[in-house]
């Protein structure tokens, strides 16, 4: 597993916030037991080999999406709809749709 993780001691582990988000998301989902690490690693490896010029975190992201869809955790069409909604929101910033998401949620219990 470690050979596929970025070198966090290097000053620029992530070139952009989205890379850090993608990295953290995959780690968190793995921590929650949604998949075994080799399942992700294999897809990441395949993605990198299939697209050698593609930036590392783009491969990471593609592998994550594939894995989530394959596991039935996300529907490919729902993912696409959501992505489109994000793009639409950013394109029309002055129209306020509930677009933002909370940074943390303390869920309701009982009831």
């Amino acid at each position: 597993m470690t050979e596929l993780l970025p070198d966090l001691d290097r000053p620029k582990a992530f070139a952009a916030p989205w890379e850090a988000q993608a990295f953290a998301l995959v780690l968190k989902l793995h921590e929650r037991g949604l998949f075994e690490w080799p399942e992700f690693a294999a897809r990441l490896s395949a993605e990198i080999h299939a697209h050698p010029d593609q930036p590392y975190y783009v491969c990471w992201h593609e592998a994550a999406v594939e894995l989530l869809v394959a596991k039935g955790l996300v529907e490919a069409s729902a993912f696409l709809d959501q992505a489109r909604a994000v793009v639409r929101f950013r394109a029309s910033d002055h129209h306020h749709v509930a677009h933002t998401t909370p940074i943390a949620v303390d869920p309701a219990r009982g009831g």
Partner: peptide, 11 residues
């Protein structure tokens, strides 16, 4: 707040 209330934190 009651446990049945969800709390959302916005950054």
């Amino acid at each position: 707040l009651p446990d049945t209330t969800e709390i959302r934190v916005w950054d």
